[in-house]
Design a protein around this nucleic acid. Structure first.
Lengths: 171, 171
DNA sequence: ATCGTTGCAAACGTTTTGCATAAGG
DNA sequence: CCTTATGCAAAACGTTTGCAACGAT
């Protein structure tokens, strides 16, 4: 038993890291012989100004449009997000058939509650999950790289206003 | 810390159920005023002959092709799989951007280890995960309907033959 | 006779690709 | 210079939809 998960009511705090995301990214690029272009720099900045999960579409929507300065094309956004994931800056997971991204550098490991009514993702942390994960993996001689744990259901607010502005429940 | 997960080395056993999948499905259809067509019956049979996870594409590939008896069109396969999920016969989850299905009736609840090298899904059961899930949910006043827990990494076999027939690692 | 279901073709939304041009190291 | 990166257009991918004909109840 014991304290299974920290108090999850407050937003997650940033954690100490030795390099800024930009420094870490530049190191990554250098190590691989990749280039740090203006698009990549701009996207990194945009992405690290967010503190919420997002998908490629939402990000693109909020970026300068074709013609504006700092315009980044859709393929480049996809290519760059993939690079950020490779660099360990972002974490990717799938939800409702598309990729979601969230900060993975300078933020504590966490998992999600997913409300299938309002589509809200609620974060929580739990040391026990990590312990359990490693225990299961060890018993299978499996080398863990990552995990996803998503609890699906209905959040408190949606459960209350059951018959009002209820949206489609799709899971 | 107590027995966290049963011995997962043997394949999972079927569990006792009061109705056959077909019976349960017919009850579901009747309750909703839906119809039991030859296509649905045939698909149910095909699906419950499997004991492995599958996606729509793999299933369709192994079904009679256009022109043969028992041919079922692609849209009907998708529509019917969705119905099976609604009926509680199948469980759906997403992997690498597409929907995977597995038996959910007459089989114990379980989670997965996913080898990103050979794409193998390994099942395991853990009571602790369910307990933990419910505990986290309760502390958020969240009404759990389901969860997915996938541990990503490299399986024992792939870890050994590192440099031989290694396939792309995509997660 | 209803009304859900089917197959077809065509659309869909997300992500990826080929390719010619641009630009970082 | 050399090679990676970009933008464009178009393709690819898994999945869904509109619709007319079909078939279960």
């Amino acid at each position: 038993m014991s304290n299974p998960s920290k108090n999850e009511s407050e937003p997650l705090q940033a954690v100490e890291v030795s390099m800024t995301p930009l420094q870490r990214y530049e190191e990554f690029l250098q190590a691989r012989g990749l280039r740090n272009t203006s698009q990549k720099k701009f996207l990194l900045e945009q992405v690290f100004n967010r503190h919420e999960h997002f998908d490629a579409d939402l990000l693109i929507e909020q970026l300068p449009s074709r013609g504006s300065t700092n315009y980044v094309s859709r393929p480049t956004v996809y290519r760059t997000l993939k690079e950020f994931v490779d660099a360990g800056l972002l974490h990717r997971f799938e939800l409702d058939g598309r990729s979601m991204y969230e900060l993975n550098y300078g933020y504590p490991e966490h998992d999600h509650l997913y409300c299938t009514k309002c589509r809200q993702l609620i974060e929580f942390t739990s040391d026990e999950i990590v312990r359990l994960r490693d225990e299961v993996a060890r018993s299978h001689r499996f080398r863990v790289k990552d995990h996803r744990f998503i609890i699906q259901g209905v959040c408190d607010q949606c459960a209350k206003k059951r018959s009002l502005g209820r949206r489609q429940d799709r899971v």
